[in-house]
């Protein structure tokens, strides 16, 4: 029974990826732009070259990228390539492949965003739960208004403020980049602490801004949960306040939060575009920004496809894991 459930869910996952890949293929085609021609025209403009042989070059590149074939044939080979995780060459960084570029940027984004998402989820959820809890220390009530205020600020704006204060005025932390210009990447202590120092400001801007959202959602769920009959009965059972809090209130109130967490984790791959651009962080978001600037269709497609696949995968894993979190959801139905 459980195998059938998993297979069905996996089927849904593949379907999502296929639909995404198809949209991803056809939408840019609808724009009517010719990426190769655009790119060559750009080069020509920059280099001041005469446009002799331009048409020939366009044809040559179209042939190389397979852009001269009928649309359906292109679609077929595109699907085949995607199935093999071959995302074609980057037009703007030719001859580097899209896969290479993404693989380079991915660890930065995942490292930054996975950490910040998990941290803000953990802190925010716990804070939210305590805020709804009548026995929580009174000082906590003063903590919330500032967090809500922060939550209302877009985090790139907050990031700019942090850069101004800590990097520019106080000069405590580096202003830009994923690591210092001279540092040689490697698993050395120096490099790791260098990366950590560069990550503090972007991480802080994301964490401080998103804690409020998690806390707000959790507080709402907690208030509802605390009104449930099973919480009243738990109290009538003479359970310790800690037991009632963790095993009866938080355990139930956190269920919708986990869904939100998984979706947030799935979205990590799209990167925090603005934060990465502001801090010059070499992640996926910055790469996407660059790709859009350069009209690098293959790179945009590759990134969007990766994001959708990751989101689909996250949803798939959530579907598999959810019955473990909530016994009322069984593998049998659907």
């Amino acid at each position: 029974m459980q195998a059938v459930y998993v297979i069905k869910r996996f089927g849904v996952f593949l379907l999502i990826v296929w639909v995404a890949a198809t949209l991803n293929f056809f939408l840019p085609k609808l724009s009517g732009q010719d990426p190769v021609r655009t790119k060559l025209l750009q080069e020509a403009a920059i280099g001041g070259n005469v446009q002799v042989g331009m048409e020939q070059m366009v044809k040559e590149y179209d042939k190389r990228f397979g852009l001269d074939r009928p649309l359906l044939a292109q679609y077929g080979s595109y699907l085949y390539d995607v199935g093999h995780f071959d995302l074609n060459y980057s037009i703007s960084s030719y001859p580097r492949t899209v896969k290479e570029l993404i693989a380079e940027a991915l660890p930065w984004t995942v490292g930054l965003l996975a950490t910040t998402t998990l941290l803000s989820f953990a802190i925010g959820t716990l804070l939210g739960a305590l805020l709804a809890w009548p026995r929580a220390p009174a000082w906590m009530r003063y903590l919330m208004p500032p967090l809500w205020a922060l939550h209302a600020i877009p985090f790139f704006l907050f990031g700019l403020i942090l850069v101004y204060v800590f990097a520019f005025k106080l000069q405590l932390l580096p202003m830009f980049g994923g690591y210092s210009p001279g540092a040689s990447p490697g698993l050395t202590w120096d490099f790791i602490s260098d990366v950590a120092a560069h990550s503090i400001l972007p991480a802080l801007s994301i964490i401080l801004v998103s804690i409020g959202g998690w806390a707000l959602a959790m507080r709402g769920m907690m208030v509802t949960t605390m009104g449930e009959d099973y919480v009243v009965f738990a109290e009538a059972k003479g359970l310790r306040a800690g037991t009632v809090f963790m095993r009866y209130c938080v355990r139930n109130a956190i269920l919708p939060q986990t869904t939100a967490l998984v979706l947030a984790l799935g979205q990590i791959l799209s990167g925090a575009v603005l934060v990465e651009v502001i801090f010059g962080f070499p992640g996926i978001g910055a790469l996407l920004f660059h790709a859009i600037q350069e009209n690098d269709q293959f790179l945009i497609q590759g990134i969007v496809f990766t994001v959708i696949a990751a989101l689909g995968l996250a949803t798939f894993l959530l579907d598999i894991a959810y019955p473990l979190l909530d016994p009322r959801i069984s593998y049998r139905r659907t």
Partner: peptide, 14 residues
């Protein structure tokens, strides 16, 4: 206490 409306008086996840 034997609670009112025991339909919801037990923790659904335990």
């Amino acid at each position: 206490l034997v609670p009112q409306g025991s339909m919801n008086s037990l923790n659904p996840v335990m």
